[in-house]
Design a protein around this nucleic acid. Structure first.
Lengths: 222, 222
DNA sequence: CGGGTTTAGGAATGTTCAGTCAAGAACGAT
DNA sequence: ATCGTTCTTGACTGAACATTCCTAAACCCG
């Protein structure tokens, strides 16, 4: 009974997750959501209650349908470096870790429900990594450290200008504004890109790190 | 000539950095800054030009006067685990890494100048760690991975409810609102705290990880 | 003491934000 | 067909936001 939905709820949640992953919670306005999701304001509020409601739905969905499957794939990797590579795999300049990353940095400290979802995903990954470590469970903190390392590597990969994931080269084409240092309504200059002295790929760094703890010895140790 | 400043610019920058470290850029309003810094609106705008101007000043100051000295201290640690411990040391529930963390997650992807400062700090830390690794420079990605691991460990430490750094226990005393799931102006429930199955301290995990790469062998290897 | 200059203070600006309202449109059931 | 229910639509609301204006105060120099 009643008029049928004009949108696919799962599709909306997935698109919202993508937006929140790229721009964080505070970086996405309800207007942005309305514009990119093709759903009008009231439908969002009727369905999810609030911006935070949609965010939580997106986060939960992402943990259940992206992150936990990823963790499973990580657990089924042939060796630890392979597991690391799977964990950091990125398509279209985005990684499944991105939403988790932003949630952990921005929302978890002030929102216990977000913290719970973040913990759920991270603990699953940590447990899976612990099982792939040499001789059962060596030191209790090691899996924790490796999990955090993956997170940190993805964080650092996102740090470069634009978004630019692990994807191919993107020629520097910024919108280029004509703002001088102070004054003017809060804009951001365009140039000033800085590359690392010896550029290191996140995936490759993770593989190097993982190879030190591999039971199936993938020899990279000098 | 002219009326003298009623505030210490360095003090203001330091306080602003602390605020931005705890609540991120978008989480701090100019009103918040005015309230916590004891400086009035116009003085902030006269001195720093914009909210972003103040943020950049705070970030630069923090890199120069907190992070780079920390990197030096890390470089002078007796061994690699000691270096890791110094890097993650936290006082008053806050770490010098916090501002860097938030900058990297929230601002660096959309603000090249922020990205440059983040890169400056991270590259310094990475270089310092590389010099403490066994046999000169083993694999190029290892220092990169360890740097990212420290970042990720701090990120994860911040994830728990409240802010709570490495500081002592804080009984769960949240304001407790009476909001039900949807509706009501976008509030956040209070309960729902989730601890890790086997709780691991960030510092201790970093030490475990670092001990695997120590030249001065601090034996913790299973 | 009186110009010149710089800061302080408080009130205002226009914009953007999350969230709401009231009317209409599309369906199942009767 | 008509009723009740559910979804859609676009305009609307009040609060919060970053930024600016204007007037008064405090200082240095002559």
């Amino acid at each position: 009974m009643g008029r049928p939905r004009g949108f696919d709820e799962t599709e909306v949640v997935r698109a919202a997750a993508a937006l929140f992953a790229r721009q964080a919670y505070d970086g996405v306005s309800v207007d942005d959501l309305v514009a990119h999701l093709g759903v009008h304001r009231n439908s969002l509020y009727k369905t999810f209650g609030s911006k935070r409601g949609l965010y939580m739905a997106a986060l939960r969905w992402h943990v259940d349908n992206e992150l936990l499957p990823l963790v499973t794939a990580v657990g089924e990797a042939p060796d630890l470096p392979g597991a690391a590579r799977r964990a950091l795999a990125a398509r279209d300049g985005g990684s499944p870790l991105d939403l988790l990353l932003m949630a952990a940095a921005e929302r978890a400290p002030v929102d216990p429900e977000v913290a719970a979802q973040v913990a759920r995903a991270l603990n699953a990954l940590e447990e899976t990594l612990a099982n792939r470590l040499p001789g059962g469970s060596p030191a209790p903190g090691l899996a924790h450290a490796l999990t955090s390392a993956l997170l940190g590597l993805r964080l650092r990969a996102r740090t470069s200008p634009q978004d630019a994931g692990t994807a191919g080269p993107e020629p520097g084409a910024a919108p280029s504004r004509t703002a001088t240092s102070p004054s003017g309504p809060d804009t951001v200059p365009s140039g000033t890109g800085t590359a690392s002295p010896g550029f290191v790929d996140a995936e490759q760094a993770a593989v190097v790190l993982a190879s030190y703890f591999n039971s199936t010895n993938t020899d990279i140790s000098r």
